[in-house]
Design a protein around this nucleic acid. Structure first.
Lengths: 123, 123
DNA sequence: TATTCAGTACTACATACATAGTACACCACT
DNA sequence: AGTGGTGTACTATGTATGTAGTACTGAATA
């Protein structure tokens, strides 16, 4: 996993975990990698992963048991919400950003279609 | 202007300036507010604005003259590029993000259209 | 019971960010 | 020549982030 500068690593890992939940890669009640294993895999300090897991637990996305491990939430409703909120956020961000740049609904859709067609030509 | 946590203020101001260039609010060779005035307006330290302007100058977006002020680039080509790069980035980010979530081109456009229609109902 | 693995907690250290205050260098203008 | 506005530079301080190392607590298991 590659981290961007200028954004705290622990926030990027939080997003990384929630993305995997949103895509279904992480499933309900599934055991996460341990704090130390995840730290080694992502090449960060275990304290950074501990902070990540603690914040994810605080918002209910995962839960941790001392001596046992950390697990994805058991609530399917929570998992659905994570996915839906993510989709809504991505779309509304896109719409807002392009409107600020002067795009109306029609032009927005046209430019998106043009982009998708142009991609096919190039790669 | 409201700043997000977790993203350095000076980066947010850089984006803020470039957005105003992209939208045409800031025009070619236009004089920017002074370091101290901009600082007061945005309620940040003047050192933060100084850093912002210096980074914007390093990438050629603006230029500064000691004792005179800071100015938007004189290059129309540069201004066009700032706008075009911004649009490309927003669209490609959107496409990538939704693909990761399992959306193909068709569904992507459908969901965008649904979002835009849904907005009309609500507000 | 003893070991191992798990989350958690703490100190120490370094760097980036942001503020606060001050000072200097440069330019325009009176 | 002097004044004021400009960018620039510097020190000091505090907070957040991240690493490094160590140690503790709890649960599972041999």
């Amino acid at each position: 996993m590659k981290f961007k500068d200028n954004i705290p690593i622990y926030l990027q890992i939080i997003d990384h975990v929630k993305l995997k939940i949103a895509t279904g890669e992480y499933k309900r009640a599934e055991k996460l990698e341990s704090v130390r294993d995840m730290a080694q895999k992502l090449r960060v300090n275990h304290n950074t992963i501990a902070k990540t897991y603690q914040l994810l637990e605080k918002e209910g996305t995962i839960f941790s048991k001392k001596g046992v491990g950390s697990f994805i939430t058991e609530s399917e409703e929570m998992i659905s919400r994570i996915r839906e909120e993510r989709i809504f956020f991505k779309i509304s961000t896109f719409v807002n950003d392009l409107r600020v740049l002067g795009y109306d609904d029609k032009k927005m859709i046209e430019e998106l279609e043009k982009f998708l067609k142009g991609e096919m030509k190039n790669g």
